[in-house]
């Protein structure tokens, strides 16, 4: 039962974009956390399964094919790192994203050396998790044609170029990252905190970066509007922003 590459091309009257559905296995011993992840990822249209122990995880990866594993390092009956080792033995092309509360450099390096694709430290924003999953997916599966289309907007991830109605629009690095973050989390409220962390990482105090986030969003909006694009970004009272997909 190999559901590895499963693409859905959803084409509506005025929008056409690639909607990639993935089969994801969440290996996390905390049911509540797993529930959050599964809910969020399912809402994004993915097929998501959850196991809580090392043994169950091994059972699953031996029996079924997954495109993505979201893996906690510390499991009640073993280490998530061993799951990666087993996975590599299976010779599958499944990607691995490690999530761990253990913010230790050693684990990170070890995990990445074993073949994990990325590493996320708890606590994380679900929108960030999703963005990372998408990034891994694009890196692995869309090799040459890393392009995202959304109505009149076109983003080329490889060249980092942005086109509105096929006219290039100059974006700063941060604005580009911001737009990409929005496009991977469309129709969702994204908090200021998660945007700040996505753009500046853990070490910048979010408190200072909120104004910064606001400023970048203002600039991004202005640039899209100036290129006669539509303003998709809505401010969600006090909390954050939402990239609205207009109802057809």
């Amino acid at each position: 039962m190999d559901l590895r590459f499963l693409f859905c091309f959803k084409i509506s009257s005025e929008s056409h974009f690639i909607f990639a559905m993935m089969k994801i296995l969440v290996v996390e011993d905390n049911p509540e956390l797993a529930n959050n992840i599964v809910t969020y990822l399912k809402e994004e249209g993915n097929v998501c399964e959850w196991v809580s122990t090392y043994m169950e995880a091994i059972d699953k990866i031996v029996s079924f094919g997954y495109e993505m594993l979201i893996l906690d390092i510390m499991l009640p009956d073993g280490s998530g790192l061993d799951v990666i080792r087993e996975l590599k033995k299976q010779n599958t092309e499944a990607s691995v994203l490690i999530i761990s509360a253990k913010n230790s450099l050693d684990d990170k390096i070890l995990g990445l050396n074993l073949g994990a694709d990325d590493y996320l430290t708890k606590p994380f924003h679900l929108s960030e998790l999703h963005a990372r999953i998408k990034a891994i997916y694009r890196r692995k599966n869309l090799h040459g044609k890393q392009e995202i289309l959304f109505n009149e907007l076109k983003i080329n991830i490889e060249n980092r170029t942005f086109l509105v109605y096929d006219n290039p629009v100059e974006l700063t690095q941060k604005e580009f990252d911001l737009l990409l973050f929005f496009l991977t989390n469309k129709n969702r409220v994204i908090t200021k905190q998660s945007i700040a962390e996505h753009l500046w990482g853990d070490y910048v105090d979010a408190y200072d970066s909120f104004d910064f986030v606001y400023q970048h969003i203002k600039n991004l909006r202005k640039k899209i509007l100036n290129a006669r694009g539509e303003d998709y970004i809505r401010t969600v009272y006090g909390l954050g922003y939402k990239f609205m997909v207009p109802h057809s």
Binding site: N30, L33, K122, P123, G240
Partner: peptide, 20 residues
């Protein structure tokens, strides 16, 4: 400080889901 991270992630996630 390590142990509080998991419950915080959960709470944060719930709020994020609630926001949607």
């Amino acid at each position: 400080s390590h142990e509080i991270q998991t419950p915080l992630t959960i709470a944060k996630g719930k709020l994020e889901l609630l926001l949607q």
